[in-house]
Each structure stands twice: as C-alpha cells, then as structure tokens.
C-alpha cells in the first residue's frame, strides 16, 4: 500500500440519478479507496441498488462526476448463472480463451466448489450457486467488486459460512468492495466502513474498529445500536 496521495478506486461527486420526476440519487458523494471494503445500508427503496448499478455502468448518470476503475463486476442478489452452461463455463464466461478453463477451475476451488465444475447450474443449492457467482466475479480480478445483497436469499447458517469465505477471498484479491446489505451485523462484521444512505445521499459514515468486529464486544453493540437508530429502528 502506498501513501495517502494514491487516487481512490471510486470517486463520485454530486452524482444524480432520476427515474421520471423522482430523484433517487441526489447529489451523492462517495469515495472508496483501493482495497477498501465498504458496506452500504439503508431503508428499502432509498436507492442502494440504483447507486450500485450506476457504479457498475449499467445505468447512466443524470448529473455529477463519477470515476470508477476500468474493471468492475457485480454479484447480484440472484446468481444469474446461464442454465445452459455447465458451472465452469459460467465462471469462464468471456475470459481469454487459452487459460479460461484453468482459471475457472481454480476460482471454483477457491470457493470450495472444485468438484462441481461439470455440474449444471440447476443442480446447485442456493448457497452453491451464489458461490459460483462469486467465483465468476473474482476470476476477473476486478479492481471494484459490487455486491448487491448477495446473501439475502440464503439461510442464516449458509450466510455465516459465506461471510468467512468472502472475507478470506477479499483479503487475498484486495479489490475495492461495495456491499449493499439489509443486515446490520453483516455490514459491521465484514466492512472497514459502514455507510448509511437516506434520501438519495450518504447520510453517515462509520469506520469499523477491529474490536467492533467481534459480536458481543461493547464496540460492536454500540455501533450496531447507532446504525439501527440512524435507520429508524428501535430495539426493545
């Protein structure tokens, strides 16, 4: 890692996005450093997916400036695997020919699915399919990895396992990460920074201390309560 003068991976300045006459992103500012893991939480419909799609270049801007790295990929809430291709080909999709197969295989090994390379996507469980989607994203060695609630459809146990996996993979590949999630605990446990979003902007920015990453630690409890309060949730 070099010094603080290094340009950030993502820089959004006054980014605006409208659907009809409804402004979803309202002069939003955001910076993500290289290799930084940022989680984004916010009420349903506040514009998280819209922001992520804008960063991914899937939607155009209606105003503002945006700099993103040339290589970015998205893992969506659904796995979006092509059902007519075997698992390994889904991972290898659009990779340079010669090494595609070998790279796909090693990416599958990394997510613990080496022996599923020849399986059809329909035969995978939800968690396995989502891991393949993760492998498909990571095999591209992206500088920016965008995750839109990738674990939301998984059961609690699988989700905990996915957290461990994602943490390891990201530590190894060091892309900048933006994780959209509804799960406050997940945000705290995985991210270096947790952002909350409100009315089309980033409302708050919390750095997560090392201590806060332990469930039950006082720092964890405090940060969690703070975040929930910002989202307007009061726990008895």
């Amino acid at each position: 890692m070099t010094t603080a003068v290094e340009a950030p991976a993502v820089r959004a300045r006054s980014v605006t996005r409208r659907y009809g006459d409804r402004t979803v992103l309202h002069e939003l500012d955001l910076e993500i450093r290289r290799g930084e893991f940022v989680a984004l939480i916010g009420k349903s419909g506040c514009g998280k997916t819209t922001l992520l799609r804008t960063l991914a270049g899937l939607d155009a801007l209606d105003g503002g400036d945006l700099t993103v790295p040339p290589s970015s990929t998205v893992v969506f809430q659904e796995h979006r695997l092509l059902p007519w291709w075997k698992v390994w080909r889904n991972v290898a999709i659009n990779l340079p020919r010669g090494t595609a197969r070998a790279r796909a295989r090693s990416a599958l090994e990394e997510v613990g699915l080496g022996d599923h390379a020849e399986a059809w996507p329909v035969t995978l469980s939800g968690g396995e399919a989502q891991r393949v989607a993760l492998a498909r994203a990571l095999v591209r060695e992206p500088e920016l990895l965008l995750l839109d609630e990738p674990f939301a459809a998984l059961d609690a146990l699988t989700r905990i396992r996915m957290h461990g996996l994602v943490r390891n993979l990201i530590a190894r590949h060091r892309p900048a990460v933006l994780l959209v999630t509804h799960d406050v605990d997940e945000a705290i446990l995985l991210a270096d920074r947790v952002l909350t979003m409100r009315e089309g902007r980033i409302a708050a920015d919390h750095r997560v201390s090392a201590a806060a990453r332990t469930r039950g630690d006082a720092a964890f409890v405090t940060l969690r309560a703070e975040l929930l309060a910002e989202l307007g949730v009061v726990e008895q």
Binding site: P83, A153, A156, E235
Partner: peptide, 18 residues
C-alpha cells in the same frame, strides 16, 4: 436472530434458476 431492516416486509425473491 440478526435484525434485518426489510427482511420482514420483503420475502426473498423466488429463485429463477429453481
């Protein structure tokens, strides 16, 4: 369990690959 903000109102979407 972990409190989720919207899980209570929005059930997980049906898996299109199922």
């Amino acid at each position: 369990s972990t409190p989720t903000i919207a899980a209570a109102v929005s059930p997980p979407a049906a898996d299109p690959g199922a």
